[in-house]
Computed example of a mutant assay.
Amino acid sequence: MKMNINIAIAVSTLLLTASLPAQAQSRKPSYYVTWQGDTVQAAILRASDKKNSHLFYFKGDRQGDVRQELRPENVKVVVYGNERFVSDSLPTAASGKQVFLKHLIESEVSLYKFTDEAGKAHFLFQKKGGELQPMQLRTYSGALKVALTGCPSFNFNDPDFIKQYSYSVRGLSRFFIAYNTCATPDVPVVEHRNKTQLYFTKGVTAGVASSAVDLDVLVAKPGNYGTYINPTIGVFGEFHVGRHLSSVLELQYHRYEGELLTQDAFYPDEIRIAMKYVRVPLLFKYTTTGKGKFFLNAGPHANYRLAQSGNRKYSSLAFNYLPDINKMAVGWSGGAGLALSPFANKSELKLEGRYNHTTLYTGVNACGTLISSQLLASISF
């Protein structure tokens, strides 16, 4: 028993400390530039391209700082990591309303992207010192042919040539990198694109679990031993791959107590069992962007039983009753939830509902199930 507890403590310590060296990487450098030319460092809150075409939010570094707005009418440039947004008027907008254009390629001829309210992407290019020129899906090759004549090797009359450069962020970025490199080789070409960022976060979790055990005749008197509601606590480490994907390794402590009450032809038969165990899920997770970020996760888990007890009463007899269940069990978990950022720093508060299905074994044979539903609250930092 003492050894099992020491193992649990060691694993939890490993989860917490493994993420410490990379924690500083989770914060991207961000700032904005006012129309007066002042550069202001700020914790920019990145959302989707559609939302950020009209508005950014940011927070100060002090605890308790409130979220503030950045609008294109008041801000000239917003920088988040390697991404850059510039304020300008769309050439198709009669009102001249300012928007944030995502600056994809910066050089003698620059490339921009604007995402409208319907989520549709529009691309524009601009020669240095010139005006913005929009591109349309069906006619963009013609617009490029007329405006960009500085590279003789670009044969727009060849149908296969333009097929190399699709009407997309990737395709047009490749085109403008190639064109600027050819037409003005002495002018630097900067691609404003965030590389996939790898970093760790860690956290603690707590909640409530509703668990039920079913056993079959291989290990015990068969039946459902009832539902047990108990608090659960744990720690986790999360490895992030970019803005949306991550994997989560958790260590949770659980308890279960159940009973099976039956009546034969002569006497009542009362069986009570109890278990203490740790669960280690490995979850693969997808998270959206926005003020409140929704997420889905799923993956395998392993249970390790730390302790077991039980007793059986039949007529006037009472004796210990320990089903012959392996200490190790495996299963799968899946959940969904919402992540919020109510703090001035990068900490997140997460609320999640999760379902866990565990298969119990005796030897190599399945002998029952442990099913639990959880409501969890966690904080990452």
Rank of each mutant, 00 (worst) to 15 (best):
M1L: 12
N6Y: 11
N6S: 09
N6C: 08
T17F: 12
L20G: 01
L20S: 04
A24W: 07
S30Y: 12
W35K: 15
I44T: 09
N52C: 08
N52W: 08
L55W: 14
F58A: 12
D61L: 10
R62Y: 06
Q63Y: 08
Q68P: 04
R71K: 12
V78I: 12
V79H: 02
R84L: 06
F85G: 00
S87Y: 05
D88Q: 13
K102C: 01
V109P: 01
L111D: 06
D116V: 11
K127V: 00
P134T: 10
P134G: 07
P134A: 14
Y140K: 05
Y140N: 04
L144H: 03
G150W: 04
S153Q: 15
F154V: 08
N155C: 01
Q164A: 06
S166K: 10
S166N: 02
S168M: 08
V169L: 09
R170C: 00
G171H: 02
I177S: 02
Y179D: 02
Y179W: 03
Y179K: 08
V187Y: 01
R193I: 02
N194T: 13
K202G: 07
T205A: 05
S211A: 15
A212I: 06
L215C: 04
G223P: 04
Y225W: 05
Y228P: 00
N230Y: 10
P231Q: 04
P231W: 03
E238K: 14
E238P: 00
G242E: 11
R243K: 14
Q252A: 09
Y253A: 13
H254F: 15
G258D: 03
E259R: 06
F266K: 12
F266N: 13
M275N: 12
Y277H: 14
R279M: 11
V280W: 07
L283S: 10
F295Q: 02
G299P: 05
P300Y: 09
Y304C: 01
Y304D: 01
G310A: 05
S316G: 06
A318I: 06
N320E: 13
Y321Q: 05
I325C: 02
K327Y: 10
G331T: 04
G331R: 07
W332S: 13
S341L: 07
A344R: 12
K350W: 00
Y355T: 02
T358Q: 12
T358A: 07
T359P: 04
Y361G: 04
T362A: 14
G363H: 06
V364M: 08
A366Q: 14
S373G: 13
A377S: 11
F381R: 09
